[in-house]
Amino acid sequence: MTETVIKTDKLTKRFGDFIATNGITFEVHKGEIFGFLGANGAGKTTAMRMLCGLSKPSSGSAQVAGFDVYKQTEQIKRNIGYMSQKFSLYEDLTVVENIRFFGGIYGLSNADIKTKSESLLAQLGMESEAKKLVGSLPLGWKQKLSFSVAVLHRPKIVFLDEPTGGVDPVTRRQFWNLIYAAAQDGITIFVTTHYMDEAEYCNRISIMVDGKIEALDTPRALKQRYNTTTMDDVFYQLARGAKRSE
């Protein structure tokens, strides 16, 4: 039996009359790459914030890494990693300073931080950039570094919110190699993206429309169900009927 690391049951968030996330129920297994897709405004960010322990649900239940999203938000935060395109690293700190800062935040010991920094820099081939300010690095390097920092404390799950926007196709694939390697290591990946080819790299994906999960399956099964050869088309068939946007 595969271990379940995220389990939700009718998870819902209301803002006044507006139901941002409307009764979503799903499970994510250990070591899985789970793609969380939906049009802008479908409710992905709200759902993700609840799963990260940042926003209290209005109703329904969810456990993340075995902890309850109502009562155990601090434990959740210690057991997850998070990376988004909008916020990830401090531009005015050097590469090494960022690693030390986030390692400290996640409670790693100084000795641990030192050995992990070295292996991380070696793995990314960034030894000569260690003392450079993050702000001076190309976007692709920032993204790879940012992901590595998000999994530095070996979280059970890492949440990636549109991690690869704007980089070239080669760099984007290098990034996905890091994701694959982390998943091989047993870290569960929960990722949102607007690139439909990246959706194909996921073991399973869900597609949200107007606050609800309208489809959840392997990319292959979804394409069969919607009788098409591309994920782009599956997404289009599901999301074009959406009533709301951001």
Partner: peptide, 10 residues
């Protein structure tokens, strides 16, 4: 179209 979902992009 950067950061825009596939339906709006289309």
């Amino acid at each position: 179209t950067t950061g825009v979902d596939p339906v709006s992009r289309k």
